[in-house]
């Protein structure tokens, strides 16, 4: 086992899947010679050549529609949107075609492709480089939406995404790309898409999050234990769609109190769906109103103020304490 950053772990997944399956092709802007602007695809072109690691013209809809054609033909394209803020150009192709091809062709064709996009704030980036808009994709029937939180689960989820027979939007938390390292086994490891994980067990309060917000969420859980003696159960969704509600609805039945955390804007965000399911499935067990610690419903500020926008361990702890005191 090696201690890897998330960038290295995703790179490992790509290397291993490309070695294993000759139909896996990587394409996007600057993914070849440059190895990607975040170096996620570093070294792939040297090993697999430019037929399988394709530097494309600068056209996000083009990359996506081209990948759809490749996938229909039988390849397994893993395409990159350089930043999720430019991925909206891909939305028409994904919504109109990738997500529908299986249904529209009566099952004759399907679109086994992965669309990787770095997302989220916290790296002092330019405008259009910091948004967290997973709800757009998760709202689309026929698309899967995955967001890893650590190097190890990023690697295991990407392998599953590449092998998945349906299109998967894979959001990578860029603030976690190099922020920490984790042991990642050299041998094969997968995590099923559509499965959440309890990463910390507890009896008093359920914290639900995913992606980059797992770090402040876990930090808050630790401080709450140290300072308040509160045992938080922390759930990492990992897949936004198809969402796995089995663990968080059960956890809520046990704790009766829930705080959920995401950096996406609050209104119509993933949290709203989570709360709806808690109301449907755990309502009679709830002992306090559910709190959402999220990004605000505003244009994400330029980087001097982005940490005022992003949920922090402090904001999470405040919401948790209010929920516990209710």
């Amino acid at each position: 086992m090696a201690k890897l950053t998330m960038v290295q772990a995703i790179n490992l997944a790509l290397h291993q899947e490309m070695e294993k399956d000759e139909d896996v092709v990587v394409l996007g802007e600057d993914v070849g010679i440059d190895g990607g602007v975040f170096r996620v695809t570093d070294g792939l072109i040297d090993k697999f050549g430019e037929e399988r690691v394709m530097d494309t013209p600068l056209a996000e809809s083009g990359i996506t529609g081209f990948s759809i054609g490749m996938a229909i033909y039988g390849l397994k394209p893993v395409c990159e949107m350089q930043f999720s803020g430019f991925g909206y150009m891909a939305m028409h192709q994904l919504e109109a075609h990738a997500a529908r091809m299986r249904a529209r062709s009566g099952g004759r064709f399907h679109v086994p492709m992965v669309i990787r996009m770095p997302y989220g704030g916290g790296v002092k980036a330019l405008e259009h480089h910091s948004e967290s808009r997973e709800a757009y994709w998760a709202h689309t029937p026929g698309l899967k939406m995955v967001i890893p939180s650590t190097p190890r689960n990023a690697r295991a989820l990407l392998v599953s995404a590449i092998r998945d027979p349906d299109p998967v939007v894979f959001y990578e938390p860029k603030s976690s790309y190099r922020a920490f390292r984790e042991e990642v086994p050299e041998g094969e490891e997968t995590i099923p898409i559509g499965q959440s994980e309890i990463v910390r067990e507890g009896e008093d309060l359920t914290l639900i999050s995913y992606g980059a917000m797992m770090r402040p969420t876990l930090e808050a859980a630790e401080i709450l234990e140290e300072e308040d003696g509160v045992q938080c159960e922390v759930i990492d969704l990992m897949t936004i769609s198809p969402i796995d509600d089995s663990k968080f609805t059960e956890s809520a039945k046990k704790t009766g109190r829930v705080v959920l955390v995401h950096e996406a804007p609050r209104s119509f965000g993933p949290g709203a769906e989570i709360i709806a399911r808690l109301v449907e499935k755990s309502f009679l067990y709830l002992e306090a109103p559910i709190r959402r610690v999220t990004g605000y419903d505003v244009v994400i500020p330029l980087f001097q103020r982005e940490f005022d926008y992003l949920p922090s361990a402090e904001r999470i702890m405040r919401a948790a304490r209010e929920t516990l005191d209710f």
């Binding site: 809809s61 529609g65 990948s67 759809i68 054609g69 490749m70 229909i72 033909y73 028409h92 075609h97």
Partner: peptide
Amino acid sequence: TQTLHAAGIGYGIKFK
């Protein structure tokens, strides 16, 4: 929108 799929299918043909 479909014109891109034809380009991608064409790449698949060439690739194989």
